[in-house]
Design a protein around this nucleic acid. Structure first.
Lengths: 253, 253
DNA sequence: GCAAAAGTGTTCCGACTACACCCATGC
DNA sequence: GCATGGGTGTAGTCGGAACACTTTTGC
């Protein structure tokens, strides 16, 4: 993995003592789950300038003076897709030489490092984003993660990394409830897990029993009927009842 | 969390459209476990130049022209502590404004971003490092993680992050065996887990049974006697037998 | 009535817990 | 012998897997 070849030529030795200059970018990996259509979606934006003009890419920006990484991530989202106040979590940093075509080929001049951030939004917010993006609407779209077009930079790699993280988070953290409607059926919840984790991660009826036994899902008493079949109870997440389980691993799945 | 105050004054508005220039550093969080003395250790180096002269810090360096992040991490380790070929894993990136005193107070000029890397080395290698560091030996030392001195930069925060990662990794990955001697007693293994995870993470005899039932620990037949008491069997890790368990979570603990 | 979806119950089995107990050694 | 640490066994309990079965709706 390390390429510390001591047999380097003169050129690279002379490179090697000089510090590289960087611009730092942030890229956002924003997921959303469409339980009805069983699709895991990711927010992409069609680039309009080089490099990679007319390619789909993650929404991001370059970090400005006095701006923290996370602030830059938030700014790019509010500027480009009119979204505020997302909960963002840092993913990974990609910073090898040559990852951005803007870098000078002699490897002097600026390098580009990308710090990626991760988030999950509700499907209703996702639909709002897709529409609300005013004139630039066509440039912004949700894509299915397993049907991605060719992407700019190393964004494909970043997405893969993000997908892994999403799967992991689902298993020990209650993010599903931050993203489902306030009231939801147990089948909604099941579909949610299934579309992210892949199907048949668990038997449905066992999933029910286990989740209910944990005691943080409250039956609201309301019912909802969806086509044929018995109407389903609507549940809501009880954050207080969940509190004691907060730091226990593998609560779900 | 985001500080997107629109009520900013002119100065910061005028900052805000200009890209920040960065130097990028790498910092290594290298752990080692001393099972005999029940200590979780971390490798620190005494800084000799400002900023934070004479403070302990993580071994790191600034990234050079044409050098990947990981290469820089490896270089800093081979230059400063004479260690090669560590398996490094990226941890986190810290890059907010003001994290390095070298930054100009007006927030023009270079910012400093740190990408941290994580590793675990055997205790024998740790001892070798502590001695082998030639003339600079006094500058390099292993410190107990719960008895750290004041550190340079935000290195304390980085270490906390690394410690959490180490605990997590222990639970689902067999790194313990990469770092214990080839042959070890089950008690060695138990001590190892206990010093990292905190004591009484499990009953010893149940730990034994569970680990042995998994079937990737082979009894070598050799025995070792340590003071009084019945001699212990030496086991070794069987990577092939472990293969099928590779992707299953929560194998240990 | 019948299909469809929601929800309950049951059986089996393996895993984890908490011990008690036996074994081999040093002194 | 006895203290010390290594190692085995067991009884109770809990939880998951698989699947049959019941309930409530639309049509």
């Amino acid at each position: 993995m390390p390429k510390r070849d001591l047999k380097n030529n003169v050129v690279s030795l002379q490179h090697s003592t000089q510090l590289a200059d960087f611009k730092v970018g942030v890229d956002n990996v924003i997921f959303s789950v469409d339980i009805e259509q069983h699709r895991l979606l990711i927010l992409l934006i069609l680039r309009q300038e080089p490099p990679f003009s007319d390619r789909w890419s993650l929404p991001g920006t370059l970090v400005r003076h006095g701006e923290s990484l996370e602030d830059a991530a938030h700014r790019s989202l509010s500027e480009k897709v009119q979204v505020q106040n997302l909960y963002l979590e840092q993913l990974y940093s990609f910073g090898g030489p040559g990852r951005d075509p803007r870098e000078a080929p002699d490897s002097f001049g600026d390098r580009y490092l990308s710090v990626s951030y991760f988030s999950l939004v509700s499907h209703s917010e996702a639909q709002f984003i897709a529409k609300g993006a005013r004139k630039g609407a066509k440039r912004i779209a949700w894509h299915e993660v397993d049907k991605l077009p060719d992407l700019a930079f190393d964004h494909r790699e970043i997405i893969n990394y993000g997908h892994r993280r999403l799967k992991n988070k689902l298993e020990y953290s209650p993010i599903a409830f931050e993203v489902l409607p306030q009231q939801f059926t147990l089948n909604d919840l099941y579909q949610f897990y299934e579309t992210v984790l892949g199907q048949s991660f668990s038997d449905y009826s066992n999933f029910r029993t286990r989740l209910l036994k944990l005691g943080f899902l409250l039956d609201t008493g309301h019912k909802v009927s969806r086509g044929a079949g018995r109407p389903a109870s609507l549940y809501r997440f009880d954050a207080i009842a969940f509190e004691p389980l907060k730091n226990k691993p593998l609560v779900f799945v």
